[in-house]
Computed example of a mutant assay.
Amino acid sequence: MALAAGDQIPDVTLMTPTDEGPKPVQSASVLGSGTVVLFGVPGAFTPACSDTHLPGYVLRQEELKAKGVDTVACTSTNDAFVLGAWAESRGAGDAVLMLADGNAEFATAAGLDMDGSKFGLGTRSQRYAAIIRDGVVAWVAVEPVPSTVEVSGVEQVLAQL
């Protein structure tokens, strides 16, 4: 069953890119305090992810903070090295906490995994956005078509805050 409003955020180990290399973090720790906007993408460097999804959250970070968001995080079914390179290429800096879910453990625990094998991608995360308050999901929207950014973009999140 997919993550829904009222659910506790799953607690799994994710990896975050740092200057010293990938660092393990617990999802419940990095997503469980304050108001967090989490968006999930099937893969870094893919067209919708790179052209629309991530840039929207980077460009509108001040608006998110003004609405009380403490952390903006992105999870993707890539490794931490890929996420680090993607963040750098898109100028994400400290605006978005990158969380690598290379084995899709978070996506699966959240019920937000998908089979991308017909595209040679294996198990991937669905494209979604969620607002989490102190570890509890307040709102979540999952894209019906993974290659689009319609219900999970920053505009929709801002409207829900």
Rank of each mutant, 00 (worst) to 15 (best):
P42D: 10
V36W: 11
F45W: 14
F45A: 08
A107Y: 04
L161A: 05
P47D: 14
V137A: 04
M114T: 03
A92T: 03
S147E: 15
V30S: 13
S76A: 14
A138R: 03
A110E: 00
F39L: 08
K118M: 04
A85Q: 09
A110P: 01
H53V: 13
A141H: 07
N78D: 15
V72P: 06
R90H: 10
Q160F: 13
L112Y: 03
G111C: 01
E88M: 08
P146H: 15
S125L: 03
V149C: 11
R90S: 08
V151D: 12
T35A: 13
T18E: 12
V72K: 01
E62M: 08
S89I: 08
L38N: 05
A48C: 15
G116F: 04
A44H: 03
A85L: 06
A80K: 05
G135Q: 05
V145N: 06
P17H: 07
T52R: 11
D113L: 00
F45N: 09
L14H: 11
V58R: 09
D79T: 07
L31C: 14
R127C: 07
V12N: 06
T123W: 01
E63K: 06
V154S: 05
L54F: 14
A107F: 01
A129G: 06
V41L: 15
V154W: 04
R127P: 09
A73I: 07
A2Q: 03
S33E: 15
P10C: 12
E155W: 13
G6V: 10
S29L: 08
H53L: 14
L121R: 00
G56F: 08
A80Q: 02
F106I: 01
K67Y: 05
D101E: 03
V136C: 03
G135R: 01
A4G: 06
V69N: 12
D11N: 13
P22V: 12
K65A: 12
L59D: 15
D94A: 09
F45C: 10
G34R: 12
S50V: 08
P47K: 12
